[in-house]
């Protein structure tokens, strides 16, 4: 069974458009287990009941931003090992450095195409 069949992914973005775009791309890669959340807290809540291997999260979200979500994941035992791909509109050095320190697995700058997303995911989990 290929990795893509087993991989569980959660997409976190406050814009439903972005969630839809990413989910659509994931679907085209053959990843079927995709959950989504509109903000950090609901992502954490959903992860508590159905864990995933990889979280793909937007950086700029109201309330809890992507890095805050990453921090919450990393400081909580069961979610500590979840892979984290940050999507940013502005790839500031500051954001990337902070992500690095918090244990971000990879980042992807907007706008991106499905191939870019796939590459960013594969860099974390291996060939899909």
């Amino acid at each position: 069974m290929a990795l893509r069949d087993q991989l569980r992914v959660m997409v976190v973005d406050d814009m439903s458009t972005s969630r839809g775009l990413i989910a659509n791309a994931l679907d085209s890669f053959g990843i079927r287990n995709v959950a989504s959340a509109a903000d950090g807290p609901s992502a954490l809540q959903k992860l508590a009941t159905s864990p995933v291997h990889l979280v793909i999260s937007d950086y700029n979200m109201p309330g809890m931003d992507g890095l805050q979500l990453l921090h919450a994941l990393r400081t909580n035992g069961p979610t500590r090992g979840i892979g984290f791909l940050l999507i940013t509109g502005r790839a500031d050095r500051e954001i990337i450095d902070m992500g690095k320190r918090l244990g971000m697995n990879n980042f992807l700058k907007k706008p991106f195409d499905p191939a870019g997303l796939r590459a960013a995911i594969e860099a974390i989990v291996g060939k899909l």
């Binding site: 069974m1 087993q6 291997h53 050095r93």
Partner: peptide, 15 residues
């Protein structure tokens, strides 16, 4: 555009 060096960290998923 800043040149950002970032090496992705691989996740080991043992299925």
């Amino acid at each position: 555009e800043e040149d950002l060096d970032f090496t992705p960290t691989t996740l080991s998923l043992d299925f």
